[in-house]
Design a protein around this nucleic acid. Structure first.
Length: 681
DNA sequence: GAGCACTGC
């Protein structure tokens, strides 16, 4: 094989820069860790790049209150820094928290560190994620999701249990991490003012764009960690491509014809449909290749794939056969595949955007950021050098935005604002965000909370009400917690807890397009003319009746894994209700109670039938339609409340509940004023 | 008469 760096297989490409990245050797994720049974753990630890820097690093960390640590994951920083801190006796007066954006990462890192410390998980080293707390009074090193630390902060805004907080993967800029930035910064300052034990904050990031971090954390020093580097050759197209699907296809097969079969290909696309279509085309073409061209195995990879099928991407292809993985951005961070030699980057991603005016979230295909493009490129050559083919020109690359817009600037802020107020933040409208969301987004969130009765305005200030305080104790969107808190008035808490749990997990229903008729027939047994909420409740009750029988789930196209999650969520919500001394009970078959309760909790999401048969959303007056997946699709109910709006070919309402105009009026007389025309109901 | 990237409490 000629040196494939000098001879790009795809002729329409031209070489760009060579990108150096660090070798990743991170344990866990979905990647089974390579057993290295012959090398003792102590030796392995000393082989990590970070080990060389240890004395100097610890010297600095001992003195600093804030530090920004830049280094690729392979430097060993996430597993080693917490141990170094502990071994040096730093922060012994309290716990060391290490936060992660994802559950799997928190769990597997804790496992790895416990192993290195030769202790049982849950003793010295533990982890806390939702539904799982593997810590004890002995725990000093605590790995946790960032969302979990945020929850803890509501009960303890100064984070007094902790002497060190390590915020890992900060470059991902999840909403939770961004809010935590502000929370730890405030806690740090407040603890200093109150002469409490100081809080050390260490921010760890893979990005080189550190000015923002450093500036925000009081111009804190930036420490760089070297990793092991493998070069990645970048190729750009010579001309802009009008059809990235076609371009991807051509590139896959040019590589396939020229590179050794053991070199696997990872292709970044935008979504399920596109990936399945491309997979079909690839398999078809692969059947008719010239002699001397080996076989290929094409593997789709996206989040909604059943777990067993997701695991296929880790299996090595048979000898002489090439593995081609077609993936969404799940392979950018969440799933790590070894042995990838080539990355093909479409340059596109499907991502959510939010418009505060309409309150609409739109999922749209858009261009990636430069940081994202580098992240994708970095997936080639984790073990050795690799290549990345960008299906766009170098000029197009130059015009990409440098960093992905942080999620906090792209989402509905009502939960965040409620949480900040529950944390006792004095002026939420001007919270010290590292990247400020737009004032409109903040205002719209606070307005929403005011409508729900969670906050009140007095003399230009916003205050949390007693109801708002209770709402904040639920790990839910505010309108859901409001509905739960209303449920005792209608004696239907059991039903509402089930419905809210059903709505807050990913869908519990399977919809294989090939079995459309069967699915419809199975669904019919549970469908209710009162709407989708009641229909879901019927399915859940039937599921409980057969004790979650797997066979029943298969026959009825019910996702038993997600149903299990519904049970966990419901148990958690019930616990919170009991702590709030709520009187829980069931309304039995009296579904009108349930609908009245939903109407009162969700009145902001109401829509009204117009004389011409269309619907208008009552708050924004925008035209909306009933989504064809709804059980109310065939009917023309006068008033409905909906769970969410989905903007695709039209603006669709999803998960609808039939309501009376009177109920809406009762829920918010002033709000609706003359908006309603109840004569029609 | 449609089709949903990815996390997380």
């Amino acid at each position: 094989m000629p040196n494939d760096h000098d001879h790009p297989p795809a002729k329409k490409f031209k070489p760009g820069s060579v990108f150096f990245r660090n070798d990743k050797n991170k344990p866990g994720m979905l990647l089974p860790r390579k057993g290295n049974a012959t090398t003792p753990i102590e030796v392995q630890r000393k082989q990590l790049p970070i080990y060389q820097a240890k004395p100097q690093l610890m010297n600095q960390l001992r003195q600093l209150h804030n530090a920004i640590l830049i280094g690729e994951t392979g430097s060993g920083k996430t597993t080693q820094i917490p141990q170094y801190l502990y071994e040096a006796g730093i922060g012994r007066q309290g716990l060391i928290a290490i936060t992660q954006p994802r559950r799997v990462a928190a769990i597997s890192l804790a496992g790895r560190v416990a192993e290195e410390k030769r202790t049982q998980l849950g003793k010295l080293v533990g982890y806390t994620v939702r539904f799982e707390d593997v810590t004890s009074s002995e725990t000093k090193l605590k790995f946790m999701t960032d969302g979990m630390l945020l929850r803890e902060a509501i009960g303890d805004p100064l984070l007094l249990r902790y002497t060190v907080v390590v915020l890992d993967e900060a470059h991902e800029r999840t909403v939770h991490t961004d809010v935590l930035f502000g929370v730890v910064k405030a806690a740090q300052r407040r603890r200093r003012e109150l002469n409490k034990i100081p809080l050390k904050v260490i921010v760890m990031s893979a990005t080189m764009d550190v000015d923002l971090f450093s500036e925000y954390f009081n111009k804190s020093p930036v420490l760089y960690l070297e990793g092991r580097q493998h070069p990645i050759q970048i190729y750009y197209t010579k001309h802009p491509q009008s059809d990235y699907l076609q371009a991807a296809l051509v590139t896959i097969f040019q590589i396939h014809q020229e590179a050794p079969p053991s070199h696997d290909i990872l292709v970044f696309m935008t979504g399920q449909e596109e990936i399945e279509a491309l997979a079909r085309t690839c398999r078809d073409i692969a059947k008719h290749l010239p002699d001397g061209c080996g076989p290929m195995v094409v593997i789709p990879l996206y989040a909604s794939l059943p777990p067993a099928q997701q695991l296929r991407c880790f299996q090595p292809a048979p000898k002489g056969c090439r593995k081609v993985i077609l993936s969404t951005n799940i392979a950018e961070t969440s799933v790590t595949i070894s042995g990838i030699k080539f990355v093909i980057d479409s340059g596109m991603v499907k991502a959510k955007r939010f418009s505060p005016d309409s309150g609409l979230e739109v999922l749209a295909v858009q261009r990636v950021s430069k940081a994202q493009a580098w992240q994708r490129a970095g997936r080639a050559g984790r073990e050795e050098s690799g290549s990345c083919y960008r299906l766009y020109t170098e000029n197009e690359f130059d015009s990409l935005i440098p960093m992905t817009v942080p999620e906090i600037q792209r989402c509905n802020l009502s939960s965040v604002m409620l949480q900040l107020m529950a944390l006792g933040v004095p002026d939420v409208m001007n919270f010290d965000f590292m990247s400020k969301p737009s004032p409109e987004a903040v205002r719209s969130a606070v307005n929403h909370l005011e409508l729900l009765g969670a906050v009140e305005r007095k003399e230009g200030h916003v205050f949390l009400t007693a109801l708002g305080k209770k709402m904040a104790s639920f790990p839910l969107e505010p309108r859901y917690s409001k509905t739960i808190l209303l449920s005792p008035d209608y004696s239907c808490s059991d039903e509402i807890l089930s419905i809210v749990s059903l709505l807050s997990v990913d869908t519990v229903l399977f919809n294989p397009p090939a079995k459309r008729e069967e699915v419809l027939a199975a669904r019919k047994k549970f469908s209710s003319s009162e709407g989708d909420h009641i229909t879901l409740l019927n399915i859940y009750r039937a599921f409980k009746k057969v004790s979650g029988n797997k066979e029943w789930c298969r026959e009825n196209f019910v996702n038993s894994r997600n149903m299990g999650l519904v049970n966990d969520v419901q148990a958690q919500l019930r616990d919170i209700c009991l702590k709030l001394n709520m009187k829980l009970g069931s309304c039995g078959a009296e579904m009108e109670n349930v609908r009245r309760c939903i109407a009162r909790g969700m009145f902001v999401n109401a829509a009204e039938l117009q004389p011409d048969g269309s619907y208008l959303a009552l708050d924004t007056h925008q035209p909306v339609s009933i989504h064809p997946s709804s059980v109310l699709f065939q009917g023309k109910p006068a008033y409905v409340v909906f769970n969410e709006l989905l903007h695709t070919s039209r603006c669709y309402m999803r998960d609808l509940c039939l309501v009376d105009a009177d109920w809406l009026l009762e829920a918010a007389p002033e709000y609706f004023g003359r908006k309603l025309h109840p004569s029609k109901s």
